[in-house]
């Protein structure tokens, strides 16, 4: 049971959260302008590193805030994420 620090509620048990996948993948500004391959990259392709990973969580059973953290996929250590929960522009 990981302990995840919600920026609003503070540390809470993982069970109160929903996982949101890789952070920093923004919805493209003009999807129609993307090639099929570029679009498939946005929809389907995600990193799967062994180590630090920038990922999103949603405090679904708490304050309902989406936020992102850096988490180590081996040790599960969670570091503070200086970035905003906003996604960054894709590509």
């Amino acid at each position: 049971m990981q302990l995840i620090e919600c920026p609003w509620c503070g540390p809470r048990d993982e069970i109160e959260f929903r996982y949101g996948g890789q952070a920093g993948i923004a919805y493209p500004k003009d999807p129609a302008a993307l090639s099929d391959e570029e679009w498939a990259g946005y929809v389907f392709m995600r990193d799967n590193p062994r180590g630090w990973f920038h990922e999103r969580w949603f405090h679904v059973h708490g304050c309902r805030t989406w936020f992102s953290v850096r988490r180590h996929t081996v040790t599960h250590e969670i570091g503070r994420d200086p970035g905003s929960p906003r996604r960054e522009e894709f590509g």
Binding site: R18, T65, R86
Partner: peptide, 17 residues
Amino acid sequence: AAAVLDRLEEWRQTEWP
């Protein structure tokens, strides 16, 4: 119901705040 609500919240907060 819960999944749709979560999804609306996700896109508002993370894409179009």
